[in-house]
Design a protein around this nucleic acid. Structure first.
Length: 568
RNA sequence: GUCCCCGUAGCUCAGUCGGAUAGAGCAACGGAUUCCUAAUCCGUAGGUCGGAGGUUCGAAUCCUCUCGGGGACGCCA
């Protein structure tokens, strides 16, 4: 419909161009929008205001000339000039109601689009270190990343979800050491967790699992205080990753692939990528300036292998090797992102915590240097979650082992509510998450509001059967004449645009807000109008409408990974 | 010192590519159920869109400056 309106206005403008009213070189960049106010019709074109300058006449006068040239079309009931020169189109009733028939025909396919054109896109998210269970902040990134992936899939992209496992740094060694301490304790040794070790309870679980599998095989090693053997570290990583997978599973999040940082080292991919950079003369041995604004007491100037990322928009050049000669995390990250590009993805999306925002420029710089493509990577930053309980902040410290895990929250609140609450907020705003509020199954919880709308329609369905009534969907839609019905129809017709916009902008929160709007319009309607009317034609019309609402809510919730219950 | 995010009603937040009289939920107050689920609805009240300039037909939205809050800034991840 929107396209049709645009086409009509454009053809009018072209006619005026031929007549010389509008200079032929002027670009016809008009916008068709949906007016906020119902009085302004179904669609609104700003053509006259945009073109007024080119035509050198006042917008209202030009609007009249455009209006005179707009071709007749049965779908548009009338055109009006309003405000500073808007051209407002009001659709004919049947053209507007046609969306109901479309929804009831396409069912779960309604709203899916092909704007992605089958483009291969990879979404990398979560990528939490395999050193402990996920916390609430990870959960937010996980849910948002998953929703972005689902939105892209719904809009015709070939999406792959990937988890990058940081299994190569010193922190996994710390994990191994921590496990061995707990392991010793299981055999009666009195131990204290060393400075910098992981104190969490889960470490005990890992140690127990190790004991169960290997008995006392590692006891001597553990007591000897030497570096944890690779086999123990591997076991610890695998066990923790199993926890993480289980946490993700509880949130309905499934990945297509899991990428191990270690393989970058073992396959020589990091060394290879450094060679490529060296071949482009983008590496050198140099010394960095001390960072500003941070205490620099222990700063030592050391020559390091640096990447000339400042040539690609970064603030400074970045080190690729530590002072001991080992690769930096950044070096591995370059190799990883290069590998993604090599795998043939046309677009890469990373979802990171906001505290990693400083890395965007350097990773983009590296990708541009290696692939020559500036825009292949988009990074979505997800801001922090501030946990509170009954209004008082919950202090969390991984070091002290006092943190609320994601799993605890999901187990208490449920996947639906957690997902919806996380998604009903822009990712780049901080999120205050009150455990008491989320845990209480109160009516304040927006997810229930939307789900209830769905359940209510299902209830109408059941009532209809019980009463021995029937309705033919898609029939007698001309009986939908009430203002509340028009509002609903208009909202329904917006759904495909909401999906496309949310997907293209990478902002999933638009969808929950839309669903809340739709549910609200439905509840208003439901309170004031009976669906199961005696009048069969009216019943057909109204049942078709609410069934279309149910279908769209179902489709939207599915994209969000939230269930649509039939009764509550 | 530099970079990123945020600032909109008492609170929590939406606000599409710059569009018409800036919206919702919660909280407050007053109402609605002989009738398909009251996990709902209706009404009242609530605003210097942090501030100042600028761009233009038109700015919460874009640009510059500024104030406030958060985050980041060598070898960690």
């Amino acid at each position: 419909m929107r396209d049709l309106v645009g086409k009509l206005v454009t053809s009018a403008l072209e006619a005026l161009q031929e007549e010389g009213v509008i200079p032929s070189e002027a670009a016809l960049t008009i916008q068709i929008e949906r007016p906020r106010d119902k009085k302004h019709g179904d669609f609104s074109a700003n053509a006259a205001m945009v073109m007024a300058r080119h035509a050198r006449m006042n917008p209202r006068k030009l609007a009249q000339m455009i209006l005179d040239k707009i071709p007749e079309d049965s779908a548009v009931e009338r055109w009006e000039i309003a405000g500073p020169g808007f051209l407002n189109a009001t659709l004919a009733g049947d053209a507007r109601a046609a969306v109901i028939g479309k929804i009831l025909k396409e069912r779960e396919r309604f709203g899916l689009s092909t704007i992605g054109g089958g483009k291969r896109v990879q979404v990398e998210f979560v990528s939490a270190n395999p050193t402990g269970p996920m916390h609430v902040g990870h959960g937010r990134g996980a849910v948002i990343g998953d929703a972005i992936a689902r939105l892209l899939a719904a809009t015709g992209h070939a999406v792959e979800k990937e988890y990058y496992i940081n299994d190569a740094g010193v922190q996994v060694g710390v994990l191994g050491r921590s496990v061995l301490f707990r392991y010793r304790a299981l055999f009666g040794d009195t131990v204290t967790i060393p400075e910098g070790g992981y104190p969490g309870e889960y470490v005990i679980d890992v140690a127990k699992a190790l004991q169960e599998r290997d008995g006392d095989r590692w006891l001597e090693t553990a007591r000897s205080d030497q570096a944890p053997p690779e086999e123990v570290v591997d076991f610890a990583i695998a066990t923790v990753m199993a926890m993480i997978r289980s946490d993700l599973d509880a949130l309905e999040i499934r990945f297509d692939s899991w990428f191990s940082e270690r393989t970058l080292h073992s396959d020589g991919k990091i060394a290879a990528v450094l060679e490529r950079l060296a071949a482009k003369d983008l590496l050198y041995e140099g010394v960095l300036e001390p960072p500003k604004g941070k205490k620099t007491d222990d700063w030592e100037q050391r020559p390091q292998t640096l990447f000339r990322s400042s040539q690609f928009g970064d603030e400074t050049d970045r080190p690729l090797k530590k002072s001991d000669g080992a690769f930096t995390y950044f070096a591995a990250d370059i190799a990883y992102h290069h590998d993604k590009a090599e795998r043939g993805f046309e677009r890469l999306i990373d979802v990171w915590g906001a505290d990693h925002g400083g890395y965007i420029k350097r990773v983009k710089a590296a990708l541009e240097a290696l692939t020559g493509r500036k825009d292949i990577l988009d990074v979505s930053l997800v801001q922090m979650v501030n946990l509170s309980r009954g209004g008082t902040p919950v202090r969390m410290s991984k070091r002290a082992g006092t943190f609320v895990t994601l799993r605890e929250v999901v187990d208490e609140v449920g996947s639906d509510a957690v997902r919806f609450l996380f998604l009903t907020r822009s990712g780049n705003a901080m999120l205050d998450f009150d455990l008491d509020l989320a845990v209480s199954r109160s009516n304040d919880n927006p997810v229930y509001y939307v789900q209830y709308a769905h359940a209510r329609v299902c209830s109408v369905q059941r009532q209809m059967e019980e009463k021995g009534l029937s309705a033919t969907v898609g029939e007698d839609l001309d009986r939908l004449v009430e203002p509340a019905e028009n509002s609903l129809i208009q909202l329904l017709s917006k759904y495909p645009e909401v999906i496309d916009n949310a997907a293209l902008s990478g902002e999933p929160h638009r969808l929950p807000y839309y669903l809340l709007d739709l549910a609200s319009a439905f509840h208003t309607y439901y309170n004031g109008h009976r669906v199961l009317e005696e009048d069969g034609a009216l019943r057909n019309a109204r049942y078709s409408l609410v069934e279309a609402v149910r279908q769209v809510i179902n489709n939207g919730l599915t994209v969000l990974g939230v269930s649509a219950p039939e009764r509550m």
